[in-house]
Design a protein around this nucleic acid. Structure first.
Lengths: 236, 236
DNA sequence: ATGAATGGTGTACGGCGTACACCTGCGGCT
DNA sequence: AGCCGCAGGTGTACGCCGTACACCATTCAT
């Protein structure tokens, strides 16, 4: 009876259940607080039980990435390469942003998981069928870097700071030492105050840079740029 | 006597000595293996002694970043904004690349240290005196992101893999599943084989993306782009 | 009935960051 | 000369981590 109650109380573990629980737990308590022990506790199980389903913590993180990447929308059917890529990337961004830890974990993985690879394959495919040479596609993918998954490394995160005073990047005493940073920070603070509050509009900045790159790609494509002949425009 | 010998054997600690030892040790054994305990041992001291000089491990990492940032060349005197920025960024890249762990640690810091701030101030200054509005400078700095310090987040590092077989991103069995990735990977492998070995030329890719952005910046500057009037070209 | 596979358990080890109480030796007072 | 304060190094200990390894319970094919 007691056994039955126990059996009912918790369904059998599985790799999938472990991963999904890990994602949920990381959403809740943050990635740096996520430990095998806490995850096990959450699942009502002893820590070592997890190791029957994932080889180690690294593989757990890999699996978590795949769960998030699985949330990226499927590609829209018919459109020019630029809007297709744009849609794909902004959708990836939406998926990753649903889990505050995701970008950081993706960053920490040295090698791509199958789901990431599949996503990349689809993006590369858009370029290739959109008239980009293999060569140009290669460099273009590098130029996108992690942006292809919807995030970039800002030098520090000014925006998501919850405590308003904590985001004073420059304390008043340092204002004289960093005149240009100060000028810029004050302009931004002033700007945003009238709009939404403080900090920068991440989404705007992301699209600003993304479009700058996509426009650059289009120019290179038109002038049949190759790495052997970088200044295609002039020599053609 | 014994005391004297001991006193001679190790100079007194200082914040500076601690930081430099930490940088050296991280260079040697890698950042993930760097611990307060090992650092203390390296300095011939008990772990807790370090805490008289740095508040905690986070502050140690901050200090390490500052040491590396301190190695960035001073700005070249007179030149147009584009080559000045370019020189600054490529110099930062050189400094950061001298310490394989540096980019990762910079990435992990939430807030900028004074040295980083000073560096950013100088780059912002180049844009401002080069004819960029505060508004455009702001977005341009965001677009650069971590690239301003000479590194970007590639989706995974293909190049520095020491074991040649380890860098086969796509195992043969998966070739059919990821046709575009495979096509691209094979082209790259073929290309590079004749040149240097395998993998991608990071430096080339970095400059490719950097120049794409700088060229885009120049266009926006010329057409007096503002965020309130994004398509300046057409409406002027 | 039996023996192997599958999956959960219990214990234990070595590592980590760091709080806290302690000691020691030196420079500057009276 | 005697004292004190304090900067800086020490020792011990706590609670956390990932995970190796031996074990046991259940299920199921033979």
């Amino acid at each position: 009876m007691a056994q039955q109650a126990e059996a009912v109380r918790r369904a059998p573990l599985s790799r999938d259940r472990v991963l999904r629980a890990a994602v949920a737990l990381a959403d809740e308590i943050g990635i740096e607080a996520l430990s095998m022990r806490k995850l096990a506790q959450e699942l009502g199980v002893v820590p070592m039980a997890l190791y029957k389903h994932v080889a180690n913590k690294d593989q757990l993180l890999d699996g978590m990435v795949d769960v998030v990447v699985g949330e990226i929308d499927l590609p829209a059917p018919e459109s020019d390469w630029k809007s297709a890529v744009r849609q794909r990337i902004l959708s990836a961004r939406r998926a990753l942003q649903g889990h505050s830890w995701a970008a950081q974990v993706v960053r920490s993985r040295a090698r791509p998981t199958p789901a990431v690879l599949a996503y990349m394959d689809s993006v590369i495919g858009i370029f290739r069928t959109g008239g980009f040479s293999v060569d140009l596609t290669h460099h273009v993918m590098h130029a996108l870097g992690s942006r292809v998954l919807g995030f970039t490394q800002e030098l520090f995160d000014a925006s998501p700071s919850p405590a308003p005073e904590a985001q004073a990047v420059v304390v008043p005493a340092d204002a004289g030492k960093f005149p240009y940073v100060t000028e810029l920070a004050m302009a931004v603070a002033h700007d945003e105050e009238s709009v939404v509050g403080q900090g920068c509009d991440d989404q705007f900045e992301f699209e600003f840079a993304l479009d700058l790159l996509l426009d650059g790609f289009e120019r290179l494509r038109q002038q049949r740029w190759t790495s052997a002949n970088p200044s295609g425009e002039k020599t053609v």
